[in-house]
Design a protein around this nucleic acid. Structure first.
Lengths: 228, 228
DNA sequence: GTCTCGCATCGGGGAAACCCCTTGCCGATG
DNA sequence: CATCGGCAAGGGGTTTCCCCGATGCGAGAC
């Protein structure tokens, strides 16, 4: 609408990467509705994003996490190598703390969930244009809690803090064994396994038994993949 | 084709349901950019959708599958009961034809993936306004292949034997939710969820709760990977 | 050496979840 | 119209979860 009203003051150029056309449209609308922002280009996957960025040299990149093919995190890393000063805002489906941490470590400056309101995205844009970092409240407080508990986020995965016995229990839970079965298997009391599970929940910051099983299943899976 | 024949006539009213604000914006922009269409209302969840529809009495409903709380498929069924003639277009993250089949059986008239281009959505809108049914090409051919193979949709993978509600519970378990949380989320008694879980264990031939969680986690994972 | 700390092992007790059985309702199917 | 499947929900017994400890044991700290 008001895109070319002010030719004296160049607008801040924003490049959008998302594999959902409709989401791109919504984002573009949002960005262009701001006086001083304008969309300079769009892409639906990582390769097109890289070539598009090199053509349009934007001031800001908005990227979706879950792209087809090469994942969003790979794109961030690649962009960071080629354009270290280009701030990146990452949109994600997940509110998982793990994703946020990985994304920020990969070099993004903001992590916003797609569920959030549109003005949150604008807040994030403003913040990272000032050189600051933005994460949505829920993820942010989770991260702070981790730091308060003395766990530096840069330190490798929390799985390293587990004892050998605890890791053993993780394996068995991940294979679908019950507490009783594990106890019998390891020739100890059920109480002992319950105790291990309690420690696991604490160390891995999991709320309840279901989340514990979820984590263990995923970890066993991921470990089996890593071997091949 | 026929959209600019009667410029004096009232525009066709479209109601949008999606829990992503940006997606709503993109959809609204798309719809309003058409001469004869206009967005008459939006909602971010099922309850607001139902009251919004009753207030604005739209000619077409566009709904996201994966809403918070009561899921998209429930919304479709509810809408179908109250407004049997209101055509519904369903947007989905998944390209699995399991979902497409369920959605169409629940009464929707079109199934479109969010990845698809914007004009596909318009194609779908035009088609269902003419009383026809639209599914995206990939899903459509998958369905046809199943029919050609003589495989009734009820007998391939054990997951197909699950009811809509049961599949919904699988999703939530796979995301680490407890029985209580699921009950609250779906606004039913804990006993009901326990009952669903019992049926799931029976249908999927799982011994206990841990195996059930294991299965659900793996299924949700595998499903998210299948997109790429 | 003693002290602390993490680890592994158990127990009590109350709350929650699990598990099996049954019931009622509705809509579709035959 | 009768039966069957899906959904919701309750009763009641069993098991697990979860928050409290407690003990012994080895390893490093001072």
């Amino acid at each position: 609408m008001t895109q070319e009203l002010n030719p004296l003051k160049r607008k801040i150029k924003v490049f959008i990467v998302d594999d959902h056309a409709l989401m791109r449209r919504g984002l573009a609308d949002l960005v262009n509705s701001e006086e001083d922002l304008s969309v300079c280009g769009e892409a639906e996957d990582a390769p097109n994003a890289l070539s598009g960025v090199s053509k349009t040299s934007p001031d800001l990149l908005i990227a979706d996490m879950s792209l087809r093919g090469s994942s969003g995190i790979e794109l961030i890393k690649n962009v960071k190598v080629l354009y270290p000063d280009l701030p990146i805002l990452v949109l994600s489906m997940h509110d998982e703390n793990i994703y946020a941490q990985r994304v920020l470590r990969a070099g993004a400056k903001a992590y916003v969930m797609k569920q959030e309101a549109a003005d949150r995205v604008l807040q994030a844009i403003r913040k990272i244009l000032k050189g600051e970092i933005y994460v949505s409240e829920r993820v942010g407080t989770q991260m702070l809690q981790q730091i308060v508990r003395g766990r530096s986020p840069t330190e490798s995965s929390p799985i390293d803090r587990l004892s050998d016995r605890e890791l053993e229990v993780v394996q068995l839970i991940g294979r679908g064994r019950t507490t009783r079965e594990i106890a019998k298997n390891l020739n100890v009391s059920i109480k002992t396994i319950e105790s291990h599970r309690a420690h696991l929940k604490e160390k891995l910051d999991l709320k309840n038994a279901t989340e514990l099983v979820q984590f263990c299943v995923q970890w066993v899976e991921q470990e089996n993949v890593a071997k091949h």
